[in-house]
């Protein structure tokens, strides 16, 4: 058992290492941090640029492989390197991860819970009005790209604010800088900021989960054990709640871990549109600013997140389903 776990972890480590290395090589080849300095006004002397680049291990005149070894050596010691203008990559990512977490937790939880409920209700009354309505809604939401959805929400929010003459929804950033007032005021301000991005994240999640849960429900509704439960004398409602929903919930819970893991780096659009300085936004920014070390670190983190999510979903599956339980 321990040996098996070890093998799996080693396999994960290898995957992360290879993925991060590939990402580093690609970034170091394709991105050009030198241009950041050369584009400055006034343009610094070449020797200064070279010195700066060399200090941050970004000098394109050093052979790629040498830079890679330096970088990899640092990473092994826990040093993710510095950004092109000298910040510590690790600190910056840490800050950004906090922002992302504050953004997505609510959206993901809200989306999955609501989605499962909608899907379960739709599945039980297949072809009923609720089923039809939720199906149509899910199809429409799934067809709207996040960019469009986020922008639509902003347009609506501005319209609502204008009509009510009050700032109900705040469309940019995490909190109003320099806000005065007590803790209650601050919290309200944060909620106002959070409402729209949460809605934009949750809408897609609800659509996905509801479709998924509906199909799981339909599979289970036909199952023999529902018939057994009713043959025991349980009412249909009770049988569905106690036996069908419990069994049909397993895939949704394991899927939850996956979504969470992928959104840690994947909420790029939501973060950018609503001006949250999280991981996803950093990803885009690091590419725009030719920041090789940040790009590599983000890749590393993304790989880690995906693998941990898959591990978590496996473990959750085992916890919830005695059929796959260890032992």
């Amino acid at each position: 058992m321990a040996g098996f776990l070890l093998r799996r972890l080693v396999n994960y480590a290898v995957l992360i290492a290879v993925a991060a290395s590939l990402a580093y090589m690609l970034a170091a080849t394709a991105l050009d941090p030198r241009s950041n300095y050369e584009g400055r006004n006034p343009r610094p002397p070449a020797a200064v640029i070279d010195a700066q680049l060399a200090m941050y291990n970004l000098d394109d005149r050093t052979p790629l492989f040498e830079r890679y070894l330096t970088w990899a050596g640092g990473v092994v010691r826990g040093d993710l390197g510095r950004t092109w203008n000298g910040d510590l990559v690790a600190d910056r990512l840490g800050r950004r991860l906090g922002v992302t977490l504050r953004l997505i937790v609510l959206g993901v939880v809200l989306g999955s819970v609501a989605g499962v409920l909608v899907g379960a209700c739709a599945g039980v009354r297949q072809y009923g009005w609720f089923d039809r309505l939720s199906t149509v809604a899910a199809f429409v939401v799934l067809a709207i790209p996040t960019v469009v959805l986020a922008n639509m929400l902003i347009i609506c929010a501005i319209w609502v604010n204008d009509h009510l003459g009050a700032q109900i929804f705040l469309v940019s950033g995490e909190a109003t800088p320099g806000l005065e007032g007590g803790a209650g005021e601050g919290l309200l301000d944060r909620v106002k900021h959070l409402a729209l991005p949460t809605l934009s994240l949750a809408a897609g999640q609800i659509a996905v989960y509801s479709r998924y849960q509906r199909n799981m429900m339909l599979d289970v509704l036909e199952a023999d054990f529902i018939r057994t439960a009713m043959a025991k004398g349980l009412r249909r409602r009770t049988a569905l709640l106690k036996h069908a929903l419990r069994t049909a919930l397993i895939p949704a819970v394991t899927y939850f871990a996956f979504t969470f893991g992928s959104l840690l780096v994947g909420a790029t659009i939501t973060e950018s549109v609503f001006g949250w300085h999280g991981m996803g936004e950093e990803l885009v920014a690091s590419i725009r600013t030719n920041d090789v070390n940040s790009v590599a670190a983000i890749s590393c983190f993304a790989a880690l997140a995906v693998l941990l999510a898959s591990l978590a979903s496996d473990v959750l599956h085992a916890v919830l389903d005695p059929r796959v339980r260890v032992g």
Binding site: F225, T228, K232, G233, R236, L320, D321
Partner: peptide, 27 residues
């Protein structure tokens, strides 16, 4: 349904063919 449920399992009960799928796997 209420009346049927009161009969089922009490006055009339059933044994199904495939006992694996006839039991809820998670309980």
């Amino acid at each position: 349904e209420k009346e049927l449920a009161a009969f089922r399992g009490r006055t009339i009960s059933m044994v199904f063919q495939d006992p694996l799928s006839a039991m809820t796997p998670v309980y």
